[in-house]
């Protein structure tokens, strides 16, 4: 799921070739999620079938096809940023991918993404705590090993959720620290473009050569806009 959405998020920036998508995806997620070429093209074919991407021109002289996002695809990406990752259903790596891309994608309010996730994860943690309280009461009364094992599974999930919230706190404080640092001049390493984060927690746009624009100030109003 996150591979598909991650690729859509990348295409929301600019049209890309399959190989380019692959290297961007791997580069921006710190290599934690390697993709094979086949997976990229299979995913692109499915996205094209579902009307989320289209080929933006004829194949070039090397036979490479560049893909661009449709309005439907763009809507899908927007919905992804706005919707919390459902912890009950998906592998937790999706959140890591999502944050890594949010931090490096122009126009995404990272703080809002973080808060949306924090709320959802604490809600999940609360539900788990309630389940645990009920189960441990039962365990005390019945003393069954099976209940204890189940309780340990619940506690594992509680620890995982708690850890996730701590990491989200860390992400937020890192963004705040980065925003407080003196603004650096344009990044000139075009081979490895990285976005910097402005004071609003929203990313700066990138120019066509892939380098970060040295904007003078983009302290937009969404500093307070963690909750949309």
């Amino acid at each position: 799921m996150s591979v598909k959405l991650g690729m859509l998020a990348l295409l929301a920036e600019e049209p890309m070739y399959g190989a380019q998508l692959r290297s961007e995806f791997e580069g921006r997620t710190g290599g934690t999620w390697p993709l094979n070429v086949g997976q990229v093209y299979t995913t692109l074919a499915r996205l094209e079938r579902d009307g989320m991407v289209v080929q933006d021109a004829e194949p070039d002289e090397e036979g490479r096809i560049r893909y661009q996002l449709t309005d439907l695809g763009r809507t899908e990406v927007m919905a992804w940023w706005e919707t919390p990752v459902r912890r009950e259903e998906t592998p937790r790596d999706e959140l890591v991918i999502k944050l890594a891309l949010a931090v490096t994608t122009p126009g995404v309010d990272v703080r809002a993404v973080v808060q949306t996730q924090r709320t959802a994860t604490i809600r999940h943690l609360r539900d788990l705590t309630r389940v645990k309280t009920q189960a441990s009461d039962r365990h005390t009364s019945e003393g069954e090993q099976r209940d204890l094992a189940w309780l340990l599974v619940v506690e594992n999930l509680i620890f995982a959720a708690e850890s996730e919230v701590r990491w989200l706190d860390h992400v937020e404080s890192s963004l705040a620290r980065a925003a407080a640092m003196p603004r650096r001049a344009a990044v000139t390493d075009g081979a490895s473009p990285r976005m910097s984060t402005n004071q609003s927690g929203t990313n700066q746009p990138r120019n066509q050569s892939g380098t970060t624009q040295a904007t003078t100030d983009s302290s937009s109003t969404d500093l307070q806009g963690a909750k949309k």
């Binding site: 808060q115 924090r118 709320t119 604490i122 809600r123 943690l125 539900d127 705590t129």
Partner: peptide, 26 residues
């Protein structure tokens, strides 16, 4: 502590003196 807040029915998130989000009731 998220672990402690999880005992509550609702969690209210405060930032810079403003309520920025709430979990809602279970």
């Amino acid at each position: 502590e998220a672990r402690h807040a999880a005992w509550a029915d609702r969690v209210v998130f405060l930032r810079d003196g403003v309520v920025v989000d709430t979990t809602g009731s279970p």
